[in-house]
């Protein structure tokens, strides 16, 4: 216990800094993934043919191990001299994050009660109005579930990204491994777990806050 106190006294600021880096990396990737994933998911509901293709690709892409994806991205990005560092890690995180978002946006809207949709059309709502007032609010719980999956998954993947120089909490763990220092490994792991739990709780809170009134059943 005493050792831990000494360890934290020295390393706490660094752990905090890396946690913030980690959170920023994941948040930025999430923001971009949302900007791409939600409009794409919505568009897919109007084009079944494209939806089949995209969802199939998404399910295959999700099976690709993160370290392998980094391994493929480094050579590609080194073509533009960005082989190691923030860029390949960021692109990989965006790619992984948007898959659950696209998938859940699509299924969420597709599963909106067809009678509700008919009622909206019957009232004379335009496509855009129907989407914003009826379909998206009702699909929100499913969409948010996709966002949560994406965030928790990415917090874990970003740990591995430390190996390709993307920084974040993975740095503590990789250093701990190379220096054989359990304090670094454990503190890094706990920080990652706490970050994941906090992020998931915040998203869950937002989801409940904004969907309570809508989903009565």
């Amino acid at each position: 216990m005493e050792n831990w106190a000494r360890f934290l006294e020295v390393n706490a600021p660094r752990i905090l800094e890396l946690t913030i880096d980690h959170a920023i990396l994941v948040s930025l990737a999430l923001a971009v993934a949302l900007l791409i994933g939600i409009p794409l998911g919505i568009y897919l509901t109007t084009n079944q043919y494209l939806a089949d293709t995209v969802l199939q690709i998404a399910s295959i892409t999700l099976t690709i191990p993160s370290i392998a994806l980094f391994g493929v991205m480094i050579p590609i990005f080194s073509l533009v001299n960005q082989g190691i560092g923030f860029v390949p890690a960021f692109v990989a995180l965006v790619l992984y994050a948007q898959l659950p978002i696209i998938r859940n946006t699509y299924t969420g809207i597709k599963n909106v009660n067809p009678e509700m949709r008919d009622a909206a059309i019957g009232m004379g709502m335009k496509t855009r109005q129907r989407l914003l007032r009826v379909e998206i609010p009702n699909a929100l719980p499913v969409i948010m579930a996709g966002v949560r999956t994406a965030v928790v998954m990415n917090i874990g993947i970003a740990v591995i990204a430390a190996y390709i120089g993307a920084g974040g909490l993975g740095v503590l763990i990789t250093q701990g491994i190379s220096r054989n220092d359990n304090y670094l490994i454990i503190s890094g792991s706990i920080a990652v777990a706490i970050l994941a739990i906090i992020a998931d709780s915040i998203l869950l809170f937002i989801q409940k806050r904004y969907t309570k009134k809508v989903v009565a059943d």
Binding site: I64, G71, V72, I74
Partner: peptide
């Protein structure tokens, strides 16, 4: 894969990553 990262060797990277994928 890790050899590829450490040595910055695309050959090791691809030869490791693609079979894993």
């Amino acid at each position: 894969i890790f050899t590829g990262i450490n040595l910055f060797d695309n050959g090791f990277l691809i030869s490791g990553a693609i079979p894993v994928t």
